[in-house]
Every structure is written in C-alpha cells, then in structure tokens.
Write a protein that binds this DNA or RNA. Structure first.
Lengths: 237, 237
DNA sequence: TAGTGGTCTAGACCACGAA
DNA sequence: TCGTGGTCTAGACCACTAA
C-alpha cells in the first residue's frame, strides 16, 4: 500500500501546501479555513481535515473552534540526545577531539552487560580527549556494538560520532544516562591537565535506536569547565 | 461547544469502549476491526476511525494495513519531572524530610531572575534536609512564586512538593536543569554529615507548567549516596 | 478470495465566536 | 447573522495480507 508517490495523495498535497504556506508565519497568523481549501483543491472536507490533523498533531497548527486555524507557537522541545561536538557548538565553543584509542576489543563484563552482549564479544573502543576552545574538558570512552557497525574502524574515524551513526541510520533516539560526582584518577587527571583527586563529573550513557543498543559511553568532565544542561518534559499542557 | 457530556459523543463512546476492551491485553493482541465496530455501534466508519486515531496517537494501538489493528507495545517514556520523594520511592528507599526553613522572603537577584520576578518580590523559601533510609542524602532549597501559590505556607507543609503542586494544577510538566560537580561548603557538609570540601553533586531546576515558572530548586547531593538517572528521547522511530 | 486498513466523496447538523 | 471548526453519515475504490 501507499506505493503511489506521496504527491499523488490528496491529503498529502493539501498538507504540504499548507505547510509551505505558513512556513515562516508568526505564531497566531491564520491558516486557510477548511472550506477555503475544499474549494481551492476541489476535495472533500474530510480530506482537508485529514491534512490539517497531521499538522496539528505535529504542533505546527492550532485549531480554535468558532474562530479558525492558526499557526501555533513552536513547542518547547526536550533536550535532544547529542554528543560533545554538538554540545560545544551549542555553547559557541570550538570542539576539538584527539583520538587516544580506536580499536577492536573484547567486551569486558560491564560493557558486555550494557550493550547486551556476551563477555568477550567484539566491540569497538574509541577513546577521545575532548577540548573546548583548546582547553581539555572531557575524556570520553565509547564502546560500540561491532555487529551493528561493520567496517566502522576501517572507514576512518569521523569528527562526530553521532553524525557517523546518523549516516548509518543508527543515531540514538533514546538514551539511559547516569550522572555522578567523583574525583579524577591519576590517569584522568594527567590527560585533563588537572591535579589528581580533583572533582569531576561522570556521565555514562547507553544510546539506543528502536530496540537496538548502539553505544555505551563513559565520560569524565572537568567540573571547573563543564555544567550539564538539560530540558525535560514536554509542552503538552 | 462540546458542552454535551463526553459520553454523548459517538467517537468518544467507541474510543473508551475499545480502550477498556484492550486494557490489560498483551501487545500484539488484535483489537476489533473497524467494520466490526461500525456494525456494533451503528456508526459510520469515519467515526470509528476517529476513535481509533486517538488511541493510535496516544500509543495504545497500532494499525497494520491489510492485517488489522493491534495493541501496541508500551512506549518507553522519558524521565518524568519528579522530586526527591518519588525518586527515592522509585529506588525502594524511604524518603524522609526535615524542614529547616519555611518562610516568606524577598527574592535575591539569582532567584528573581530564575522565577522571572523583580528583585525584592515575595517568594516562598523552603529548605529541607532529605534522607533516604535515614541517611542524609540531599540538602534542597526551593523557591516558589508566591503569587501562584497564595496561602501555601499557611496550609501546612506537605510531604511532597510536587503532590502539593499537583493539587493546585501547578505540577511542572517542563523543567530546565543544570547539573555540576563541586565540593561542599562548611554548612552543607555539617548538615549532610560529611567532611567539608567533600565532593557533591549540585542540581538546579526551574520547574514550569505552560508559560508559568512555578519553582526553582537548588539541591546538593552527597556524591557517595546519589547518582542521577535519566532517560531521554522518545520511541518515535 | 475475503478481510483489513487507507483514502475519498458530498453532503449534513451542531456549538461557538465575532460582528 | 455568518463563518468557523467539531461531529457524523453512508457509501465508494484501492492496496495489501492471509488463507
């Protein structure tokens, strides 16, 4: 079903027409009325409603009974699942990255459990020292399920892990995170250019898309250089 | 419009009938077919579709063209915005709370900005020492916009702030959080029963419902007793 | 082939908002 | 009063799945 090109479906035609029509309009601007669209496209009103229903559901439009249909104010969006590169650029800092380890390894017990693999299964281990505006900010270990990412190590390491995962349709849309405060080990302190036993923020993440567990990351941040910002919830009042 | 009791609307009748019918069914169980419901309720098929559309949108049902309509597997849900009490009970710990301060104050510059008030405006300041299974875990300062919560201090302090806000229709559905690692001040260390300058996790939150900023909290957690757990994203693959 | 959901029509009446 | 969105009808044809 639905092998016809989307442009052939009338409700899709109307939907995309309205979407482009209101693109860039200020919140509160009126959209065409349903009966206007009926005459304009020569379709039934139910078809127009189906088109508008979709735009209302995605938060672009808002219906007010007795008044009309209007451009909705943009919804607030919860924090997306991003990596260091995007996070730094959001803060207006230049993200740099130095790969310390990039190799195939056998999963240890913790990584195996987190990736839902068996101990000893092959995983990709990628360790990077992350800088923001040239200052060491974060030491990040990523473990990837090699079965999901054949040839990943051979294809040359990308700048942004999440961009590389996106290209393979494996960008996590869901994550389980844990965040704690701790002190740096000697090795961490050395790489982050801080004194041993200095306060750090630890952040572990399990990234998933659908039912697939894509990666596990363990990051340690300099507490004097990094605060985690989050937006939670949704605007469904 | 819609002053008729919801039970009078046919698509609502059908929707709630189906909702109760499939309540408790295993994911993958078949729901009644659209045409079955048409004959059963004596309504048009568009009406049945409207009813089922709502259940599909909320993730209860799933349509598979050519096969039928089925109970969907429950969606994963991002971490809700909760407070200490719910968080502890989720971990199977007994949450206790000792109020140290509960009074009306004038907002300082930081609190005023966070609550979008003017410096010197009245705010409710509520400071509590929070214990999990009798061990001090967290010192929490809450600042509430008094205009939104008239008589809050007089009504007796509740166990759970979020429960009390729910009762007034002011439970935050949206929050902006910041999380950092730090060391305890002398006062914090004393109350949390740790050594001064011990590592702690700081968590600030601005809680909102709609456009209203309800509260600002600043919590300091013993790092040896608390790790923050989060689930981010949604299951819209 | 029979049954399913997806799309679509050409109407209708209702409650509400604004003029 | 007129225009709006909300609800509802009684059909229709299509593409797909499963027997």
């Amino acid at each position: 079903m639905l092998l016809r090109d989307g442009r052939g479906l009338k409700h899709v035609v109307v939907r995309e027409y309205v979407r482009e029509l209101v693109a860039g309009s200020a919140p509160g601007s009126p959209a065409p009325s349903e009966r206007e669209l009926v005459t304009q496209f020569g379709v039934a009103r139910m078809t127009v409603r189906q088109a508008l229903d979709a735009l209302v559901a995605e938060g672009l439009l808002e219906r007010i009974p007795g008044r009309g249909t209007f451009v909705a104010r943009p919804r607030r969006e919860p924090t997306r699942i991003t990596g260091f590169t995007e996070e730094m650029s959001r803060r207006g800092l230049l993200a740099e990255s130095q790969t310390l380890v990039a190799r195939r390894e056998q999963a240890g017990p913790g990584v195996a459990r987190a990736l839902n693999l068996t101990e000893g299964d092959a995983v990709i281990h990628w360790r990077r020292l992350r800088r923001g505006d040239a200052v060491p900010v974060c030491l990040e270990d990523n473990y990837l399920n090699e079965i999901l990412l054949p040839g990943f190590l051979q294809s040359g390491m990308p700048t942004s892990l999440y961009d590389a995962l996106s290209a393979r349709g494996l960008r996590p849309t869901w994550a389980e995170d844990s965040i704690s405060a701790d002190v740096a080990t000697a090795e961490e302190a050395d790489l982050l250019e801080i004194e041993p036993a200095t306060v750090v923020l630890r952040h572990s993440r399990r990234g998933m898309v659908g039912d697939k567990i894509v990666n596990v990351s363990r990051s340690v941040y300099r507490a004097d250089r990094f605060t985690l910002w989050l937006q939670l919830g949704d605007d469904a009042d």
